[in-house]
C-alpha cells in the first residue's frame, strides 16, 4: 500500500486577472521507504504540490490519500493528529524557526504538541533526537541563529522525525548547503529512511542530487507531469522536451582520473 497517493490534483491561481494552472492533473504515489523526486524549472508547480500534500493550501480538484485514508476529508482535529505523520523540511531552516529560540525549544514543541513525551521525559528525548541526526546533545542550549547552516538543517530533520512520520516532504532541503555538508545531510536522510522506513517527497531543481538519492522521478512542466519513471533511467535517457533541457543544462564536471 502506498503511503501517499495523489490523483488528478489541480490548483489554479489568478495572475494579472487571468487564471493560470499552477498544478494541472497531477497523479503519483509514494511507497514506504521510497523517495520520489519532483523536478522541473521554476514555476513548474513543485512547491505548490508540496503545499497541497501538506494541506497548507487546498486543491481545486483531485484526491489525496495518505496512509489509505482520504486526506482532504479530514476535519481539523483529525488533520492535526495526522500531521504528526507528515513532516516537512524546507530550504532555509533559519526562516522556518524562530532564530532566537534554542535548539531544545524547537525540538520540544512537536514532542509536547503531539503528546509524544511527558515534560520529565522530554529533555532525554531531545538529546536522543540530536544524537540521532549526528549532533552533540549539548547543542540543545544554543540558539538557532548561533549554529551553522548544516547544523540547523540537522535540527530541522530532528524536528521532522520527532513525531515518527511515515512521509517527509523535503522542499529544496539541501539546496542552500555547501557541497561538503550536503553530502552528509543526504547520507543522514538515506540512513533515516533505511532505519525508520520513512518515505520522502524530494523536491529539487538539481538532477545530480536527485539521481544520488531518489528511486523515482516526476518531471513537471507548467504544472503538468512531462514524464516520470525510475530516476536513473529517466535522467540517463529523458523523453520529454523539458527532461532533455534539464539534463542538457546540468553542469557536467568532466574529469580524467589518472
Amino acid at each position: 500500500m502506498s503511503v501517499l497517493a495523489v490523483s488528478s490534483l489541480a490548483k489554479r491561481y489568478h495572475r494579472g486577472g487571468k487564471p493560470f494552472a499552477a498544478v494541472d492533473d497531477v497523479s503519483f504515489d509514494i511507497g514506504p521507504a521510497e523517495t520520489l523526486a519532483l523536478a522541473g524549472p521554476s514555476g513548474s508547480g513543485k512547491s505548490t504540490i508540496a503545499r497541497l500534500v501538506l494541506r497548507l493550501i487546498e486543491p481545486d480538484t483531485g484526491r489525496i490519500d495518505f496512509e489509505g485514508a482520504d486526506f482532504l476529508a479530514l476535519s481539523c482535529a483529525a488533520l492535526r493528529s495526522c500531521r504528526a505523520r507528515i513532516q516537512m523540511v524546507f530550504q532555509d531552516p533559519l526562516a522556518a524557526f524562530n532564530p532566537h529560540a534554542t535548539v531544545g525549544r524547537v525540538l520540544d514543541d512537536p514532542l509536547r504538541i503531539h503528546n509524544i513525551a511527558s515534560r520529565a521525559e522530554r529533555p532525554r528525548r531531545i538529546a536522543a533526537l540530536l544524537e540521532r541526526v549526528g549532533l552533540d546533545a549539548g547543542l540543545a542550549a544554543r540558539a538557532i541563529h548561533e549554529i551553522s547552516g548544516g547544523q540547523r538543517q540537522r535540527v530541522a530533520i530532528a524536528r521532522a522525525i520527532a513525531t515518527h512520520p511515515s512521509l517527509i516532504v523535503l522542499d529544496e532541503a539541501v539546496s542552500a548547503l555547501d557541497v561538503s555538508v550536503r553530502g552528509q545531510i543526504l547520507e543522514l536522510l538515506l540512513d533515516l529512511q533505511r532505519q525508520e522506513r520513512i518515505a520522502y517527497l524530494f523536491i529539487s531543481h538539481d538532477l545530480g542530487v536527485i539521481r544520488a538519492v531518489a528511486h523515482r522521478i516526476v518531471i513537471l512542466d507548467s504544472g503538468r507531469i512531462a514524464e516520470s519513471g525510475d530516476a536513473r533511467a529517466v535522467i540517463a535517457n529523458p523523453q520529454s522536451a523539458i527532461g532533455k533541457a534539464l539534463v542538457a543544462a546540468t553542469p557536467k564536471l568532466i574529469r580524467n582520473r589518472p
Binding site: G183, L190, D206, G208, A212, V213, R232, K252, L253
Partner: peptide, 8 residues
C-alpha cells in the same frame, strides 16, 4: 554530484 556519479 554529477549525472555520472555513483548514486549514494
Amino acid at each position: 554530484l554529477g549525472l555520472d556519479a555513483e548514486p549514494l
